[in-house]
Nucleic acid binder design. Sequence first.
DNA 1: CTGAAAGCGCTAACAC
DNA 2: GTGTTAGCGCTTTCAG
Lengths: 344, 344
Amino acid sequence: MTTQEKKITINEVAEAAGVSVTTVSLVLSGKGRISPATGMRVNEAIEKLGFVRNRQAVSLRGGQSGVIGLIVRDLCNPFYAELTAGLTDELEKQGKLLFLTQSGGQGQHMQRCFETLVSQGVDGVIVAGAAGQGADMRTVAEQKNLPLVFVSRASYLDDADIIRPDNMQASQLVTEHLIKRGHQRIAWLGGDGSSLTRAERVGGYCATLLKYGLPFHSEWIIECEPSQKKAADAITTLLQHNPTITAVLCHNSTVAMGAWFGLLRAGRQSGEGSIDSYYDQHVALAAFAEVMDDELDDLPLTWVSTPAREIGRSAGQRILKRVQNDNEEVRSQIMPARLVVRKS
Amino acid sequence: MTTQEKKITINEVAEAAGVSVTTVSLVLSGKGRISPATGMRVNEAIEKLGFVRNRQAVSLRGGQSGVIGLIVRDLCNPFYAELTAGLTDELEKQGKLLFLTQSGGQGQHMQRCFETLVSQGVDGVIVAGAAGQGADMRTVAEQKNLPLVFVSRASYLDDADIIRPDNMQASQLVTEHLIKRGHQRIAWLGGDGSSLTRAERVGGYCATLLKYGLPFHSEWIIECEPSQKKAADAITTLLQHNPTITAVLCHNSTVAMGAWFGLLRAGRQSGEGSIDSYYDQHVALAAFAEVMDDELDDLPLTWVSTPAREIGRSAGQRILKRVQNDNEEVRSQIMPARLVVRKS
DNA sequence: CTGAAAGCGCTAACAC
DNA sequence: GTGTTAGCGCTTTCAG
């Protein structure tokens, strides 16, 4: 039942400090040359009254709103969650704020999200996971002179400002790692055939095999749903039909774990003495992970992680730069992956 | 190089439609009684000019901003990610928008986040994962008459508007399930001793054991870091020392998976014929999961899931209700968990 | 049913 | 250095 406090504006501050609103405004934005004494008085008044500057008024007057809009496909996907976290971090560090909207799996709400963001007066918009459907948004953004940055998991729109992971490089990195460990017959497990990310990764895998003059069979590239059971079954079948394979590259962490189960099971059934030795002697695993995945640390495998957080941060820096001066040149930024070598 | 389009306001719309700004405003908010003909004309003009209403101006004039602020502990935690997703969904459904801020693991930035949100003119604030440190925020919110809702994973502040999962009920649910399946000697694995969530869950577990007159030993309650390896080792040790245990309750999914590995290993080493039969005959697993976790579907265990998404949705509904009329009574809302019984 | 006009809180010319 | 003042885009009495 506190008495409903009167809203404090720069007017009250000005009065309390015995100056004009201009002076207060100047102090707030640190612009005009204000005498130290006055600045002090104003700041005291601000402090005492608990004044907080109304950003909406600032923004309405013509200034920037200090807000960036994000349209993200699905927050529950760890990749996007990490991305968003990185982005908020970066923005908050710069004193900006983030509007969060979800476009939904198929991007159904994208247009609506975009309009809402625009009507809220955001300084710029970041679209994560657009799958190349940002055409109309881009025309609107252009005519409103609103910075627009895309984040993608594979390469789509090449004429837009876009940040994405280097799937090829990631794949080359991990494939080369296996090769250097002595593996010559390497298979691929997991992912959906229609996935662009997978296409790029498989591309990197093929390229690396060829580069080293190693055999490459299309039957060694297996699609698999992200279920451990399915993956375990798939690797079992694969190895039965192709016993010469010595290493398997897994498209994601779930498949990797499933594959490991499959190997365990096979090892046991084939009557080996020790699970670990079976693994070491027979089939090596490697994997892709969308984020730094602690789960994988427990598995005997090497993996590459997509730098989701860095991508988010990078997107934040990019959009802020675009907001400040539009004469940016760089259009496509590719973020490299990191190799996490198996703990010994 | 499109010509920099002039910004369109209700003024241009009014002119284009041959009416006054008042009329346009009325049409926009659907308030005053506008003749269908005029309404039509205005809407056409809006459409043609691509007008989007400036929410900042609306808000500045005294209306609501249509924005809710969220202060979340850590987005990368699946629980909070799911919560946030549910919240955005709900808010977007109501035409509202969400400001996202992260307070950091220890809630270091909480106060700063809160101030930023306030200065942006949010209609209300939701704090997720505050661990009972929202004292000063609450006084500020109260004197500004700003709705404030807390979301927590365990019970903290009881005199505030708070939504949280029913950890006790969840634990009772899953414990009872095991008991009804015939288990009498049930152990607990995982979690950190200082976790309040864990405390509540362990409480529910104890209560249920006692209720059924079953034995309860503190040595059967094991702390364990969320690492599969650690969990596997822990369950192995536990069962070696206490061979009569027939079921283990795992505090989270990582521990559950680790425990399963441990059982597999034990089964193999003890020379059982089949992994699955070993599991069935000897030790049953059950687990808690923070979200609907697909990973767990592949494991032979029953689990309860914290309704993170529903909590998010609920928080959204609650804050909107509070924004509309402050005379809400309900202060504490507890969300029940769901039991996901092992697939047969 | 529709219009004219007064601000919401703040900034930026322009004066002093 | 500091004060006056005119709006930013919108809603909302109060008159027609």
